[in-house]
């Protein structure tokens, strides 16, 4: 059973077997425009919830990506180096940023589910 949760910074995290895959939402990629560069964290690095661990850049804007949970980075999407446009094309698929082994699954409790996130985005319009 996979769970997907969202943050107010427009990141998604998909949990499978205690590992969360993190990326940015479709709304976020649209706000950024054409993504030209992504910097992902090193595998093996220990990260703390709320820490800036990745960077996503468009032509005119740069945003930090804050990890929604604490844990150890177990994978990073190095393919984005050559294909940053994947973040625009498939933000929740090929455009994922990194995977983290959750240190504390209860951190997920504070995040939004799909319905809440949809309502959140609607409130921004």
């Amino acid at each position: 059973m996979t769970t997907v949760k969202y943050t107010e910074e427009h990141e998604w995290i998909r949990i499978e077997n205690g590992v969360g895959t993190v990326g940015i939402t479709d709304y976020a990629q649209e706000q950024l425009g054409d993504v030209v560069f992504v910097e992902v964290p090193e595998v093996g690095r220990t990260i703390a919830k709320g820490e800036a661990v990745a960077v996503v850049e468009s032509v005119k804007a740069a945003s930090d990506i804050y990890t929604p949970v604490s844990g150890e980075v177990v994978a990073a999407n190095s393919a984005l180096a050559d294909a940053p446009g994947d973040v625009n094309l498939e933000p929740t698929g090929k455009g994922w940023f990194f995977m983290v082994r959750l240190a504390d699954p209860s951190e997920l409790d504070g995040l939004m589910d799909q319905a809440k996130y949809d309502a959140f985005v609607k409130s921004l319009a």
Partner: peptide, 12 residues
């Protein structure tokens, strides 16, 4: 590559 620069990154 102007996202490195002050007018976008400001304090970063």
């Amino acid at each position: 590559l102007s996202t490195r620069e002050q007018h976008i990154r400001r304090e970063k």
